[in-house]
Structure formats: C-alpha cells, structure tokens
Design a protein around this nucleic acid. Structure first.
Lengths: 220, 220
DNA sequence: GTCTATAGACCGATAGAC
DNA sequence: GTCTATCGGTCTATAGAC
C-alpha cells in the first residue's frame, strides 16, 4: 500500500509502461544493445528510478517473458485427449498456429530479434515457451507412422510457421492478418507434405497428395 | 611485400583464422556480445594485434559478409532466360534452395543469430544478399496469375525455407543433409500450396492439389 | 606482425537526499 | 517514486616500443 503523501507518479503504471517500451526497444535494437538509460529516457525518468521497479536489467526481460501464454501446454492437453492418432496431427498443428494473437506476434518478433538471449536464459520463463513446444513437437512426431530422418524437422517447421511468416514479413509492412493467413497455409501445406509420401503400409489413405483431415479449417 | 626479417607469423593466415574464429563466436554469442579481446585470445594474439588486420570491429563483419555468394543473382539471371512464365516458379525456388552448401549454412546460422546486425549495416555486403533475394522474390511473385494478399509472403517463405529449416533445427543436432532435405520439401510444398488454389482462369492445370511442374526434382 | 599501456566512452548497479 | 552523483567494470580504439 503506497504512502498517500508525496508526488507519487503511480508506480504500477510506470512499470507497465516500462515493460512496453522495453519490449519495443529490445525488438528493434536487441536486448544487449539497449541500455537502461535509453529505456528510462523514453519513459521520462532516470536510470536510477528504473532500478526502483526492476532490481536488475534482466529482471525486465524476465517480466516480459513471464507474460507469455501457455498455448503449447493447452494444445498438448487437447492432443492427449484425442482418440485417433494420425488424424489429429493437422488439427493439432493448426491449433497451435492459430493460437496467435497480435500480442503473441509482438513476442515472436522479440524472440526473432533476440534468438541468443532467449535460449541463453534459464529458469526465467523462456523455457515456459521452448520446452512445452518441444514436447508438443515430440508427441506429434510420434503420430507419424514411419518418420524419415527429416520428418521430425519438417514437423517442427510446420509448428514454427508463424515464426517463419514473421521472419519473411520482416522489413516490409504486412498486416498481421496477412502474416497469420500465410502461416496457416504454410502449416497446412507442410503437414500434408509430411503425410503425403509415407511408406503406405497403412493403406487407409488414398494415394497421392491427400487431404488427410478436413478438420476445422476456414480455407477462404 | 613483407620485410624478410623479424618473427613474422604469416599475416594472411592470421587474417583467415581470425575471420573463421570471429564468424564462429558471432554465431554462438552474437556480434555485439563478442569482444575483440575474446577473438584475439582465441587466436593467441592480443587485441591490438588484431587491429593490424582490421581497422575497426565492423571491418571483420564486412569481410565476413563480403565472402557471401551471388547465388540470388545467378538464379535471377537463370530466371530471366526462361521462356515459360508460371512453370518456371517451382524450379526457380528449388534452384535457390539447393544452392546451399555447408559453407552457406554457416552464413545462414550467423544471420539467424544476428538478425539486427545484418540489416542494420549498409553498404557492407549485407545488401548483396538481401536486395537480390528481394528482387528474386518480386519477380517470382509476378509469375503468379492472381496473387492473394498473402501469396507474396508465402513465396518469400518458400525462398526462406532453408532459413526456416535451420531455425527449426537449432539447439538440436541435425545433420546438414537432413536440414537441406527438409528445406527442399518445404520449398516444394509451399510453392504448390501457392499454385494450388488459384482462381482458375487459365484452365491448363488439372483441379485439386496439382503437380505443377515435375521439374528436375529428386524426391527421394 | 605482435606487443604493452592507456585514453575515452559507456554501461550496469549502488548510495543517499528529497 | 524519483532524483543526483558516483563506483567499478568492460569495451573500442590508438600510441608507440620491439
């Protein structure tokens, strides 16, 4: 409870603004290249004041990462509740890709700009994204009947379609809607490529490039 | 011509070793986080000696980037010499993707680890990669009959399949061969997705998910 | 070609007044 | 909650001896 006296400028608001400004600067310039002085300047306070809200520089980073969602775990839970094995693959991947909001895209852009910072951090919330996603990838690969060496990689690429779309859209102004649409189509195309040329000892699928699961898609 | 006297340790070799070591460190730690002292230490010389070979830190970066190839320009030249318009799309994309060697993958990994450094540098060789690739993408989009808003993005994603594959393979030890195989399949799948659901006013293509161009592929 | 030594700038973090 | 002032550290880059 803050003391009612004094010219208190509302600490909670400053903290929130700081996180927003920091995420922006970290994305544009990189975490390491962004100084506390710069963040403070943009906030209209001094570096020392910033230390009132965050004890260390990387505490800002942690606070940002800790705001990330638990979408991977959600998809994982959904997947484990599904009865049919191979048919669940495409819906699961699309579920993950479509769990992207505008706010999530901000996070992805940050991670793309700071790839080394992201995985160089342990116990800070970064693993709350990476580890569940890796688990999801592993469990999905297990659904592929006889995976070729590169099939696991192709599946990871399908899951990372949003990231790829964001990367491809970098330094060109594309609407988030368009980015998401491209990511969806990429994910779908890659999953189908994955299931297209399997050694067909489970001849339930018609040959050729097959629609494996119509699913809940909205191919416009 | 070096003076024949003195304990001259062969300057050209030192320079070459320096570039190799620097690329390695820049990729693992990032450009900004790698100090000249660290590079010099790994070379067995001092920081000041490194300044004999490179006048500034970013001269090392420039030297690395200037070694990059001209594959995009090559593909561009090939494309412009092709007679049929739409049929050239898939072969062109595959040409670009398959122009990846182990050495090129090293370059891609560096760029992935340093996305901001790469495009923050002007007139240093970075544009010798980015600009021709963008031109290639633009000319290829022009081959698509009635591009949807996200089609251009999807095409860029196809071209960047190698990058996406490298990103998906990060922090897991996958052979370069496997990475390249996954990139090829991704590129092919995305190009076909791109050509699959066009407004068919050019009814030369069979409906459905079509093999647009058998091309020179080596589907394993 | 490599060295020692140092200038000069900036950074993260802390102390203490208001 | 924000401030001024400052400490200790690391960095790029330069000067000059060998």
């Amino acid at each position: 409870m803050p003391t009612p006296e004094a010219r208190v400028r509302d600490g909670a608001a400053t903290r929130r603004r700081a996180l927003h400004v920091a995420l922006d600067l970290f994305t544009r310039q990189g975490y390491g290249a962004t100084s506390l002085r710069q963040i403070a300047e943009e906030l209209g306070i001094t570096k020392a004041s910033l230390y009132y809200h965050f004890p260390r520089k990387d505490a800002i980073l942690q606070a940002i990462l800790q705001e990330r969602g638990t979408e991977a775990e959600d998809v994982l839970a959904w997947l484990r509740a599904q009865p049919p094995p191979a048919a669940a693959l495409e819906p699961a991947v699309l579920r993950w890709v479509e769990s992207s909001s505008a706010e999530k895209l901000r996070g992805i852009r940050f991670l793309q700009a700071n790839p080394l910072v992201a995985d160089g951090l342990a116990g800070t919330g970064a693993e709350r994204i990476g580890t569940p996603l890796a688990t999801l990838a592993d469990e999905l690969v297990a659904l592929v009947p006889h995976p070729a060496p590169e099939d696991a990689l192709l599946l990871r690429m399908a899951l990372l379609s949003i990231n790829a779309a964001v990367a491809a859209a970098a330094q060109s102004d594309v609407d988030d809607d368009v980015v998401l649409a491209a990511a969806r189509r990429s994910a779908r195309a890659l999953v189908r490529e994955l299931l297209a040329d399997l050694p067909r000892d489970e001849p339930r699928e018609p040959p050729g490039v097959a629609r494996v699961s119509p699913g809940t898609e909205d191919r416009r």
